[in-house]
Each structure stands twice: as structure tokens, then as C-alpha cells.
Amino acid sequence: MTAVTADTAGTTGVSGVSDAAVAAEQAAYETVFDAAVAAEERIEPRDWMPEAYRASLVRQIAQHAHSEIIGMQPEANWITRAPSLRRKAILMAKVQDEAGHGLYLYSAAETLGTSRDELLDKLHSGRQKYSSIFNYPTLTWADVGAIGWLVDGAAITNQVPICRCSYGPYARAMVRVCKEESFHQRQGFEALLALSQGTEAQHAMAQDAVDRWWWPSLMMFGPPDDESTHTAQAMAWKIKRHTNDELRQRFVDIAVPQAEALGLTLPDPDLRWNEERGHYDFGAIDWTEFWDVLKGNGPCNDQRLSKRRQAHEDGAWVREAAAAHAKKHQHTGKHGEAQA
């Protein structure tokens, strides 16, 4: 903080007001902030907010944005091999949407005083995470369907409540994302249905994909509530609306009848309806795998990150060229006209 000199001259702390007065002012702000959040008002970028709230949002929005752009890779893996032109068009549009969603989210993060470059840098250096689900490989075409149905399904379950997040720009970005994403899950379901009802080989491909994606999808909701470090504070701030376990249960309850409609089996012998709870019971999640993948030991962690870094490095000369061109032509605005 000491690096800032000239600009701090006008701020409260340096202009002669006592520390006690500063603390009192801070407390007053905090009270108003808490009341605004409690009253379901939206916090906007220029409002005062606790630093921890800001940091928590940056962390969550960045992780979300990174997930969108890393998430392009496993699906883009199948664009050039999509088995029909209709499927190819759908998949290209979906991967494009993910780039767009990444952009919306980076924009939302930028309103908090952090640049996209900074966030990308943190992604590339491993200091910020993306959803671990994208560290699993897409081995067959059916994986594209399974990602749409299960991964996007889990993501939507997570994201819909964020449309009511207390931070305005994040909530608005999520409204846009959720609106656009409604087709993602449907196309995945439809693709899997075609496989399930297709030839024997196609059906087997679909079942294999669901076998591999089911458990990692359940892990997408994060660690169980008693081990989740961020949940309580995030819920108090209304960044988060439901606990990890609540959302996971909601997803299971939705997915089970959908699997039946697909004619596919979910790979959990303990999955059964619990009349008393009014929910499906399901088996124990292998949290060892979850933590292991999170730490970097998943099948594709290195591959995803190095591809992302490579794309960024390969693009550096392009970004520099456009910036250099803009600088040269900033006075004319137009090309081919004599510079005054």
C-alpha cells in the first residue's frame, strides 16, 4: 500500500482525521452494507463493500470464468469429429457460448477492480482454479452428450441461484448465462437419447460415458457442507444461496428420472428413493479423488493448462499488433485517410 503516494493525499486516513474516526466510518459503512444485503438489495461496483466480500467475489467469479474457457477444451476436442452436420453446428455454437460466458464473467470480475490480464495470469500460473470436472478427458462422442446432460445440468443447478446473488454485475451476468445455457443441457440430453436408442454400439458408448461422468458431476458441487470453508460466509453475504449438499441433492433428484427416460443406468448401487426424506439416497462420493484432482493430479490438469497457456502465448503477437495499430491510428480513427 505504501507505493501509493500522491493519490492517497485526499483520502481520509492521511488527511488528518483520527484513526478512531476512520474506524467509526468503516463500521457505519458496514452496517449499511449489511442492511442492504439483508434487504435483498443489490450491491453495485461503486458501492462500499467489505474487502473480504470483494475478495470472495473475485475468487468465485474468476474461478467461474476460468471454468468457462477451460471448459471449451474437452468439447472442442470433438468439433472436428462430430458425426453429423447438425451435431457439429450445435457443438460449435455451444463452445462459442462458453467463450461468451467467459467474457461476461471476466467483465463482471473487472468491475471489482481487477483486470482480465491479472486473472488470466493467475489462471495460467495455477494461482486460481477452474472447475475440476474439466480435468477429465472426453474419450468418445458420447462424452459430449454426457457433459451437456450431467455437467451442464450440475452447472445450471449451481448457477440459477446465483442469478439472485447480492452482487449486481455477477447476478446480471448469470441471468444472461443461464438464459443462453438452457439449450446446452437439452442438446446433451438429446444427443445421449439418440445414442441410447441407436445401435448396440451407440448405446454402449452412451452408458460408458455416463458411468465415467456421473461421480465427477456430483463432485462439482464441492466438498460436503461440514468441510466447505467458504459456504457459511458466502451464504451470509448472499453470494451463495444454498449449501453444496442441498444443491447436490437437488441435482440427484432431477437426474434420476432423466436417466430412466434415457434408458441409461447411473453407476450407483445405493441410489434409491427415500420416501421419508422425499429425496433420493445416493452412495458415498470418493472425496480422495476429488482432492487429488483438485491438487493437480487429474487425468488432464497439465494438458488443459498448457493448452491454455500455449494459446495465450501464441496470441501475444496478435494482441500486440492490434494495440500497436490502434496507437498509430488513434488520431484519425479511420484507415486509408491522411493523418492530419
Binding site: D7, T11, Y29, A36, R46, W48, R54, L112, G113
Partner: peptide, 21 residues
């Protein structure tokens, strides 16, 4: 008064600064 334009100054926020890992 809650909306004092203090938040105009991003350098007031810790996230504005690059700190070595």
C-alpha cells in the same frame, strides 16, 4: 451517505496490488 464515491479509487483495494506469490 453509504454511497460515498470512495470506491472510485481502485488503489484503495488490496486486489489492486500485485504481491509476489
Amino acid at each position: 451517505p453509504f454511497f460515498e464515491p470512495a470506491a472510485d479509487k481502485p488503489y484503495r483495494h488490496p486486489t489492486f496490488y500485485d504481491i509476489p506469490e
